[in-house]
Amino acid sequence: MADTTVGIPTVSVTVNGVLRRGTPEPRKTLADFLRDDCELTGTHLGCEHGVCGACTIFMDGEAVRSCLVFAVQAEGADITTIEGLSAPDGTLSVVQKAMNEAHGLQCGFCTPGFVVSITALLRDNPDPSDEEIRQGLSGNLCRCTGYQGIIKAVKIAAGQSVDANGKAH
């Protein structure tokens, strides 16, 4: 646990397998800690109040909003960010490849959050129905794509066959 006394606690977290230590101000969010202190700027900040999902990361195996966790609360946690989802040699993950293939992104701002959420969704439900995909994506906002490409990407990543309109066969 972090130091409970007055002052600035030291924080150690494992990020993408690497132990990171820091002394973030208590009010610094985990998202800002990852971006500023760990220089992992793949985690994006849209709304900074839990609505848009751009900042979604894995914390101890579950997808969470990194803008709604203070870095000091993550003491001892195991974090995976978008940078940790591709292979060390840069080979894209199944979900990343599918996003590419299905044109699941345009400006790309929302993409890291979507990729993390989709990765979590498919881990817990490897063969989701249309309805489950839509519900599973409801916590991530995209201002560009209109979502159809993203939904198609989920189907491709799940190994479901899709036609040009993203409809499952």
Binding site: M1, A2, P9, R27, D32, C47, H49, V72, Q73
Partner: peptide, 21 residues
């Protein structure tokens, strides 16, 4: 969109949290 500064206390138990409050 950044919170104002605060001091952070990680409680160890329910009783500890009540004591801190």
């Amino acid at each position: 969109m950044k919170p104002a500064p605060f001091q952070y206390h990680a409680a160890n138990s329910a009783a500890d949290a009540a004591q801190l409050l």
